[in-house]
Computed example of a mutant assay.
Amino acid sequence: MDKYIDAHIHLDKYSNEELKKMFHELPFQLSLVTVSCDLESCKRNLALAEIYPFVKPAFGFHPEQGLPSDNDISDLFSWINAHKDQMAAVGEVGLPYYLRSEEDIKLDGYIELLEEFIKLAKRWDKPIVLHAVYEDTPVVCDLLEKHSIKKAHFHWFKGDISAVSRLISNDYSISFTPDIVYEKEIQNLIRDYPLDKMMAETDGPWAFEGPFKNKPTHPAMMAHSISTLAEIKEISFNSALNQVYENTKSFYNID
């Protein structure tokens, strides 16, 4: 049976019934790295991991929302510290690129919070899952380099040539979503990125367009994504699938 790893999904945003249906329908062996948005999200992802051994939880604070209070930050870090041995990675963390297009917000507090998460990843030797695109990429790279972080995963990455070059020079990993099937920007980026630094994700339940329009986001969509990757890289589907699987397994230390 083929093996897949969804490198970035928000399982906590699915209902229990949706998850039971999803896992029952899978046509392949699957592991999932489920990222967290806040403390309650962390708790639900951990609870899911205790039910489903193929679920690997990451703990963090999603940046596309208002900053938490000092008390909330303290509670979150205390909880993560207490459960650090049960987490696969620190994440999802980063900078609020899309929120800034809607609101006039300052980055200083977000940068400070991100650096604290980076310090945790360094201290505990954990991978870190990053929400950082376009002009936010250099800021995040500066922090990663400052703390000598090696295992950094830029999920659903988008950026210009200079940003791509910097990620490649640091051996950072990226992942692609099902929009690789229909988005030229993503296809062009993937064409130039090293295959051994790529992972597949769904970012579910985020909805997609193209052949996935009006369909609930499901890990099975990765087969279509990886097929497109194989076409772009001019290799067989099995070669692309095996490489992406091994990349993700190694990056997240998945058994």
Rank of each mutant, 00 (worst) to 15 (best):
A58V: 10
A82I: 02
K106I: 08
R100K: 15
Y110R: 12
N45H: 01
V90C: 15
N81V: 09
D85Q: 11
L114Y: 12
W79R: 04
L46E: 01
Y110E: 07
F61M: 06
I111F: 07
D85Y: 01
I51W: 00
A89W: 06
W79M: 08
I51H: 07
F77N: 09
G94P: 09
A58E: 14
A47D: 12
D108M: 03
L67R: 12
W79V: 07
K84Y: 03
Y98I: 14
L114A: 12
L114S: 13
F54T: 12
D104Q: 14
I51L: 11
L48W: 10
L46Q: 00
G94F: 04
G94K: 07
G60M: 02
R100E: 14
L99I: 05
A82R: 13
K84N: 02
F54G: 13
A47T: 10
G109R: 04
S74F: 06
Y97L: 11
N71H: 09
P63S: 11
I73C: 15
A82Y: 03
L107D: 03
D72K: 15
K106Q: 09
L95R: 07
Y98E: 11
S74P: 01
S74E: 13
A82E: 13
E92R: 00
P63F: 08
F59D: 01
G60A: 02
Y110P: 06
S101W: 14
S101I: 12
G60K: 00
H83C: 03
G109T: 03
D108Q: 07
L46D: 00
Q86F: 08
E50P: 01
L76E: 07
L48K: 04
Y110Q: 09
L48E: 11
K56Y: 15
D108H: 03
A89H: 09
Y97T: 09
E103I: 04
V55E: 08
A89S: 09
S74M: 05
S78T: 14
G66C: 12
D75L: 15
S101E: 14
P68G: 05
G66R: 06
V55T: 08
V90S: 13
I51Y: 02
I51S: 08
I105P: 03
G60V: 01
M87Q: 07
S101G: 12
L67D: 10
L67N: 10
W79Y: 13
N81A: 15
E112A: 15
D85G: 07
Y97M: 09
S78A: 12
P68Y: 07
S78G: 06
I51R: 13
L99R: 04
Y110V: 06
F59R: 00
L99P: 01
A58M: 10
A82K: 12
K106Y: 11
L114W: 10
F61S: 04
Q65T: 02
G94W: 04
E115Q: 06
Q86R: 14
L67V: 07
F59P: 01
M87T: 12
W79G: 05
P63T: 10
G109C: 05
N45Y: 00
L114M: 13
G66A: 13
H83T: 06
